[in-house]
Write a protein that binds this DNA or RNA. Structure first.
Lengths: 266, 266
DNA sequence: TATTTTTAGTCCATCTAATGAACTTTATGA
DNA sequence: TCATAAAGTTCATTAGATGGACTAAAAATA
């Protein structure tokens, strides 16, 4: 080694530039993965492994084109420009042929109806249904339907993964088809919020006769490797069959099915 | 000019590097603007003003992250990665759950189908539809569809708020699905321009059997507090029900609905 | 089928714009 | 008030983006 020379370090390995598009995408997806409340700059830097100043400038550039928005709380969120692009983008080919057997197994195990659904705009879009062996079924939704979050446990499971702003909005505009006076003076808002909390603590939520008299259900969000959860799996049955005990009994199977599906989706 | 010297050109003004994120976004939006069939490389280069090789590499990078897909026909389309991001992105300010009741009230009043749509790139994107009580309906568009400006009165209402350059462009490329010879020797260009003028003078435009035989419609742009109008509300019905008299009768309700919606959007 | 025309994709010298360490500013909270 | 942490800014360095020129591969035409 040259004993002479100045203290000049051998090489500057600090820089690590790479494909800017890939870096910007990494930042976008880090934001998408973050809590719906928004993401902090430091966390995005940590998540992507990109230096803070670089992340900061990427976020600025992305803000300029409307793909990122920054709140007064300084947190970064996805921007509505992405929504507009997303409207024109094709839906990913969910591999339903691979997902269906998992749902079918759960339907066989539970003997009731299993739904798989995805979050779409401001509601739940049902992708598939598999019937269990039990002959009495409540046919509340069809495959292809899109329903408000508050109209099903699937919806609540998905809503629980969103920010408080979205939750407040969904609860404020809640509307499920219940007979006048059915719920009496129940604190529906509080009830629904407790269901949302259940998802956080138990990984699923469930109940009976809230959405519709005589109908019970339980649902869990399906984790995603790349995004905030956007898919849910649920079991729907007549009230008598989904007692709290039975729900606790089925919960491990529901969560296991969700986990299996998570391996098949982006 | 320097008589001496070699043929070396004075300066190389060819390069025009700029914010990569902005360029990638420009390419994405050029693809989004293109026909759903896909976009050709040359056209994207022309649309964005970026050199073909650069567009090509940007497309490659965007493909790598799933924001662009290329078919075997070599055409470039938006990728499903954008759909996934769009899922987590906020809708651009407008709150459909608040707008829907207003549309529903107009549908109830008119007994026919009411659409709410937004301007998107070079067309009209339908956000919601509420059916009226009248049983005979023309189902021309679905929610989620994006149609050219010239294919509906909603489109004309939105187009009227744009510059003459955009209007000329839209009218030049007009294409609606009418039977061969349906319009005879009508001056379609003049007719459409008169509809655009109607919006300026009356606040709405309407007519029958231009877009499609037997179908009539009327539409008004929804004012925006912060930008040029980007949303429209329209009534669609079979021709017999939307006579000029009835349109004049319904116009105040249409404009009132537009005004109410304008209070709910940015 | 051969020939032309058009478009997609590749290569590479140039040099801009992206990068991150170091620094300043702003917010949070004790 | 001061301390701490995060946001945001600056700037020398240089890696990677850029587009002209070229080649390859389709379409289009004869």
């Amino acid at each position: 080694m040259g004993a002479s020379a100045i203290t000049r370090t051998e090489v500057d390995v600090t820089h690590n530039p790479a494909n800017v598009v890939a870096r910007a995408a990494a930042v976008l997806e880090a934001v998408a993965r973050s809590s719906a409340e928004g993401a902090r700059l430091v966390d995005l830097a940590a998540a992507t492994g990109i230096a803070r100043p670089s992340v900061h400038r990427l976020l600025q550039d992305l803000t300029e084109v409307g793909y990122i928005e920054q709140g007064t709380d300084r947190l970064y969120r996805l921007g509505s420009g992405l929504f507009m692009l997303g409207l024109n983008a094709p839906t990913p080919g969910w591999d339903l042929t691979a997902i269906r057997p998992i749902a079918a197994a759960l339907a066989e195990r539970s003997e009731d109806t299993v739904y798989v659904s995805v979050r779409q705009f401001d509601g739940v879009h049902y992708l598939l249904r598999t019937e269990g062996a039990y002959p009495i079924r409540a046919q509340l939704v069809d495959v292809g339907d899109t329903k408000p979050y508050t109209s099903s446990y699937s919806g609540l499971a998905l809503l629980s993964t969103l920010g408080t702003a979205e939750q407040d909005k969904a609860l404020a505009s809640r509307s499920f088809d219940v007979p006048e006076g059915w719920l009496g003076d129940t604190d529906v808002d509080g009830l629904l919020r407790s269901k949302l909390a259940d998802v956080a603590t138990l990984g699923y939520c469930g109940g009976a006769s809230v959405v519709m008299p005589g109908v019970a259900g339980m649902a869990a969000p399906v984790p995603s490797r790349t995004q905030r959860p956007y898919m849910a799996i649920s079991i729907s049955a007549v009230e008598a069959r989904l007692t709290p005990e039975r729900m606790a009994d089925l919960a491990p199977d529901l969560l296991e099915a969700a986990k299996q599906i998570s391996l098949l989706i982006p």
